[in-house]
Design a protein around this nucleic acid. Sequence first.
DNA 1: ATATATGCAAAGCTTTTGCTGAAGA
DNA 2: TCTTCAGCAAAAGCTTTGCATATAT
Lengths: 153, 153
Amino acid sequence: MDRSPAAITARVEDLVARCRARGMPVTPQRLAIFRALLAAQDHPSAEMLYQRVRTELPTLSVATVYKVLETFTDLGVAREVPVLNDCRRFDANVARHHHMVCTTCKQVTDLYDVALDEVKPPPAARGFRAHEVSVQILGTCASCARAVRATPP
Amino acid sequence: MDRSPAAITARVEDLVARCRARGMPVTPQRLAIFRALLAAQDHPSAEMLYQRVRTELPTLSVATVYKVLETFTDLGVAREVPVLNDCRRFDANVARHHHMVCTTCKQVTDLYDVALDEVKPPPAARGFRAHEVSVQILGTCASCARAVRATPP
DNA sequence: ATATATGCAAAGCTTTTGCTGAAGA
DNA sequence: TCTTCAGCAAAAGCTTTGCATATAT
């Protein structure tokens, strides 16, 4: 995902435009949480975003983070990533991509691959209306693999 | 997955053998929960299994279901399916396959497709030790699609 | 001025944990 | 007999909800 200052500005302006289009207020909470989500590379949970934005907005509450993330997915400026069962994870990257998930440290890494993008619902899926094909590679990331070798169980 | 009586028997015997091999008791709870999981086509949660087995073992507790499912995954006779964030889902089908997930009714359907099996970790995944590649097709199942058309939002 | 959002607290769910009695091997 | 398990209850997370206040338009 493009993380240049210009791209960030464009994404924030897009959020503002979408809020205005629906007559929804542009609040400091929405802006700060969206900026934090744009800056994040780790598909943060609501709690993680709360911790990061709290330094900027000390009165922020976790409930607000959840509500704002819900709003973002409704507006189409962010999405929930369908990985890991322990807590909800979010991403401001709405372009097509896939994920590598470390089952040890729960880190989620984006994966761009045209071959994976070619994956289509097979004939067996008849009657099912596919909205999204998501490839999820589960395994152990490089640093966790090293840690395990250093301290065997 | 083969659900013939002979196959069911073989799977149960396999469970018994693996328990014995590790010196673990074969309890009525383990047998009943495993049979329920073998019979299930819907990737049940712990709560769903609890409701189904309860009729057979009225004294069963949900905590036991969780512990037993943990045991099953350790033994390699069942697995947790990496789909949906609302609750943990389990499957006695340990063969390679993928999933279609209805985001409306949360139904999870198995998907067998050799083309999807060909999906491999791309070069970008260097250093990452892939244990499993799981393709997840998110969308709306046939019956939910009908329901939406009948009662538009 | 009005509609909407925020913050707080409480409740709701799913899942885990600790312990005691029960039951397989 | 001896180890492991089942059941219970309590606790721990994550997430949602209801309501009064604050705020963006």
